[in-house]
Amino acid sequence: MIQLKGIQKQYGTGAAQVTALKHIDLTVNKGEIFGIIGHSGAGKSTLIRTINLLERPSAGQVLIDGVDMTALGTGRLQEERRTIGMIFQHFNLLTSDTVAENIAFPLRLAGQSKAQVAARVQELIGLVGLDGHGDKYPSQLSGGQKQRVGIARALATNPKVLLCDEATSALDPQTTQSILSLLLSINKELQITIVLITHEMQVIRSICDRVAVIDGGEIVEAGPVTDVFLKPQHPTTQEFVAQVEGNLNESLTVKNYAAGERTMIRITYIGEQTYEPVLFETMSGCNVPFVILQGTVSRLKETPYGQLVLELRGAEPEAIRAVELLRSRGLDVEVLRHG
């Protein structure tokens, strides 16, 4: 669906040149929600804006459904851009226009008739949950309502791709969740491909299928959210995961870890196994006492998962046998410490 090949972006020239993106290669599949997460200044805004060429890359190709956007002339590029909607962090609404007029704006630019515009606007107002607000002005709306207008406007021309540039960062947590739920329903109902950037791992965890982590203009880690979230490899990814999961190394330090014949392990459950008594059944059969030190049960989009940190009390051979039994039940078990 979307392919970024060898994307580079530099600003300035000579000694003043700054490299914002370095050799980016990414593929976004049709119909998925793909997240790009990074700190401020990491290059994520530049990256998402290369997809519709609001930022033209210094090198590389942007292909959407096989069409090389970087090779198009001005007229053809404008046509292709109509197939890409964009939602902005600060809404970018026309303050002197009503909700209905804001949504109608791209339809009028596309040359649709008044009847077509009116019908489409009413359809979109209902889709984003703004019934009864069509005649209001942006100043009369809450932040969440303004973003719903932005979403409706982005969907006006039936795009096949929806880009979200920090679409929830200006909203409170409750409103953020309602907007994420709306994006998820739009993705399911319209089968529209969504690419979003954020600095919040909670956003990625809530709705994304896959994620790329960007740091210093480079993709440092990428993959399915379940893999990246549950087994982060890069320090930047680990930092983002700690935003929502806490930091094991901080809460279970060597200082407060009891020494002796004790083994600390981390068990990861994914899917319906999360809700089954696998731990009880397995540990009952191997007669190794244990203490739960830390645990969580939650969801990654629609996939349930759980993580438990246990202290196994007993000699190392018994602890190893317990670990092997847990793994034989299909659990992911990592030995964190033995002492």
Rank of each mutant, 00 (worst) to 15 (best):
D165K: 13
D165E: 12
D165C: 10
E166V: 01
E166S: 02
E166I: 01
A167L: 04
A167K: 05
A167V: 02
A167S: 10
T168L: 00
T168F: 01
T168C: 01
T168I: 02
T168S: 00
T168Y: 01
T168K: 02
S169H: 04
S169W: 03
S169M: 01
A170R: 09
A170G: 03
L171G: 01
L171A: 04
D172K: 09
D172E: 10
D172T: 11
P173D: 07
P173M: 01
Q174G: 02
Q174V: 12
Q174P: 04
T175Q: 12
T175G: 08
T175K: 09
T175S: 13
T175E: 12
T175P: 08
Q177H: 13
Q177L: 14
Q177T: 10
Q177D: 13
Q177M: 11
Q177C: 00
S178C: 02
S178N: 14
S178A: 13
I179T: 10
I179M: 08
I179L: 03
I179H: 08
L180H: 09
L180D: 04
L180Y: 06
S181K: 14
S181M: 08
S181A: 15
L182I: 13
L183T: 12
L183D: 13
L183K: 11
L183I: 08
L184F: 14
L184H: 15
S185A: 15
I186V: 15
I186N: 12
N187L: 08
N187K: 11
N187T: 10
K188F: 02
K188H: 13
K188S: 10
E189W: 00
E189I: 03
E189C: 01
E189P: 00
L190T: 00
L190H: 00
L190Q: 09
Q191I: 00
Q191L: 00
Q191R: 09
I192P: 06
I192N: 07
I192L: 11
I192K: 04
I192S: 04
I192F: 11
T193R: 06
I194C: 06
I194V: 15
I194N: 12
V195L: 13
V195E: 12
V195F: 08
L196G: 06
L196H: 05
L196P: 06
I197F: 09
I197P: 08
I197H: 06
I197N: 14
T198I: 03
T198G: 06
T198D: 06
H199Y: 09
H199C: 04
E200V: 02
E200A: 10
E200K: 10
M201H: 12
M201S: 11
M201Y: 12
M201W: 13
Q202T: 11
Q202W: 02
Q202R: 14
Q202N: 14
Q202E: 15
V203I: 10
V203L: 07
V203M: 07
R205G: 03
R205V: 03
S206G: 01
S206Q: 13
S206D: 10
I207K: 07
I207L: 11
I207Q: 05
